[in-house]
């Protein structure tokens, strides 16, 4: 009944419907072939004893063909479902293929390994969320783009934001903050006025002195300037003091870096304001004797350099 050699002769020498010849190799399309190559060892037709492992519906199944079954082609292959546990499956393979050719045992185990691995990978991939690709409708996209541009124009963003902020200011959201420049500023103004009155008196005295010591005019002038500078300093100190007071708690120096920008601007506004006022008053009070230098110089160092 068994004529393996005769079958192999036929298949290899003549026609085999599973045989695929390429330039470099000859392949076998038979599903049960353990290697996929057309060879005497691996041919599932020309071997009356043969075993392979295949994947059926996510499980490994062992297919075994023995000489004893050769007379009934419909039951030629015995099918054994292998357990999903890899080691147990290996044990069964070992048990069923005891004393079989080493080549077939080795290939069967190789297939078992490969199949278990890809099944694990398959399960893992299935569990992972997949990104869904969504088409972009060009027409809609284009329409949205032009509508967005029109909406932006209609929004008049700067104006609406300004309006909202002013509304907040009026409704008193910033009361704790924006009272401070006004209150402190007025306070500063009062103090400034007092200072200037004193200064005026001094000036008058000075003028009298000046008449006497005309020769020493220059040094006199310097002194006066220093005085003015110090008064300015006082005013600035006043401003910063007020800021350190109850309205602002700048006591914590930790986040001073971040506040610097914001603080600077506030300071700028405050000082520039007090200075312009100071300038104006000074001019008036001086009367006839106008000190041109004070007009442009905000700091003492500049004043000095200008004089030189």
């Amino acid at each position: 009944m068994q004529h393996d050699d005769a079958v192999w002769n036929l298949l290899s020498q003549n026609f085999c419907s599973f045989k695929v010849k390429t330039r470099t190799n000859t392949f076998c399309k038979h599903e049960y072939n353990v290697t996929g190559l057309c060879s005497r060892q691996a041919c599932p037709l020309a071997n009356s004893r043969y075993a392979t492992i295949l994947e059926r519906e996510g499980r490994c199944v062992m297919y075994i063909k023995t000489i004893e079954r050769a007379h009934m082609p419909n039951k030629l292959w015995e099918k054994i479902k292998l357990p999903s546990n890899y080691t147990k499956a290996l044990e069964i393979v070992d048990e069923r293929m005891q004393y079989w050719p080493k080549f077939l045992v080795h290939k069967a185990k190789q297939r078992l390994t490969k199949i278990t691995q890809y099944l694990i990978r398959k399960r893992r991939l299935k569990l992972r969320a997949k990104t869904r690709l969504v088409g972009i409708n060009k027409k809609v996209e284009k329409r949205d783009r032009s509508r967005e541009a029109k909406a932006l124009r209609a929004a008049k963003l700067d104006r609406t934001i300004e309006k909202e902020l002013l509304e907040r200011l009026r409704s008193g959201t910033y009361d704790s903050i924006y009272n401070f420049p006004k209150v402190q500023y007025e306070k500063a103004l009062e103090e400034e006025a007092e200072l200037e009155e004193e200064e005026d008196e001094e000036l008058q005295e000075e003028e009298e002195e000046e008449m006497e010591y005309e020769a020493e005019y220059d040094s006199e002038e310097d002194e006066e300037e220093e005085e003015y500078a110090s008064s300015m300093q006082d005013m600035e100190d006043l401003g910063s003091e007020s800021k350190n007071g109850e309205k602002f708690d700048f006591d914590d120096d930790s986040d001073l870096d971040d506040e610097e920008i914001a603080e600077e601007e506030v300071k700028k506004v405050l000082t520039s304001r007090s200075k312009t006022r100071a300038k104006g008053r000074k001019r008036k009070s001086r009367g006839v004797r106008v000190e041109v230098e004070y007009e442009n110089e905000p700091t003492t160092s500049q004043q000095e350099s200008n004089r030189n």
């Binding site: 967005e148 934001i161 002013l166 009026r170 924006y178």
Partner: peptide, 23 residues
């Protein structure tokens, strides 16, 4: 700012004028 279902995101610093009339 929502205008015609488009949400415009902007980030500004502001300063009020002295009298609080302008920003």
């Amino acid at each position: 700012h929502n205008q015609r279902d488009f949400l415009f995101f902007r980030f500004h610093r502001y300063v009020f004028s002295e009298a609080g009339e302008r920003v």
